[in-house]
Amino acid sequence: MDISPDQWILYEWRGLTLNATIAFTWAVMALLVLGSWVITSRLSEGETVSRWQVMLEVIVSGIRDQIADVGARAPERYLPFIGTLFLFIATANLLTILPGYQPPTGSLSTTAALAICVLIAVPVFTIAQRGLGAYLRNYIQPTPLMLPFNLISEFSRTLALAIRLYGNVMSGTIIVGILISVAPFFFPVMMQLLGLLTGLIQAYIFAVLAMVYIASATRARRQGDDEDRDGASSHTNTQQGN
């Protein structure tokens, strides 16, 4: 039994292999993009709106509200990244009800890729908003002695992201596979339903954690800058008092 869909080679050509992870990823991408394109090509701006458009609007506005709830000031800035994380993971997990389907999120390569994207997105958003100096200064806060611990924290949480998603999805798939061989009727169905719920929750957790990391980084640095400005102003007042 293959634990990871990476090992399921669908096509091989001159050393380049097309495994199930990439193939099902493309399938999920095609489903998302084509579905979005079909629905948004007939968008209505009036009072009469189709059900599919309502569904998309609910999803997009829900993601945007979640981003705003986490504490981001401009949700539209993070919407493509966080929204795509959630939609991709959720779709990839929900499609497990299809027979023969292997979720790409059950591959550590996929979850690692997504975690690396988050690892890169945090500094990218922070630097874009606050600048490179402010971002690098954050690693030596509150003292330069904390630099190694900050680095470890950065990488460990990325690793935790990847492992969490991979473990949950992979375990669900493995458990269903085992139960099919043991009790092929009732329990696999229940575990499949549980797997749908778990996959949706994992998509939500992954997206929200990514947003929390980004928001905490930008907010912490913004608070630090505010404290620096307050210190400078109080210092100026003290000098004026003297």
Binding site: S4, S36, T40, P80, L87, L108, C117
Partner: peptide, 30 residues
């Protein structure tokens, strides 16, 4: 539990492409 770094790179590229496509066909219009 092993990581295929080629797949990782391909998935990163896939994810970035998906971000661009969804931004083009989903988020902006909606």
């Amino acid at each position: 539990m092993q990581i295929d770094w080629l797949t990782v790179a391909a998935q990163i590229v896939n994810f970035l492409i998906l971000i661009w496509l969804l931004q083009r066909f989903l988020y902006k219009p909606i």
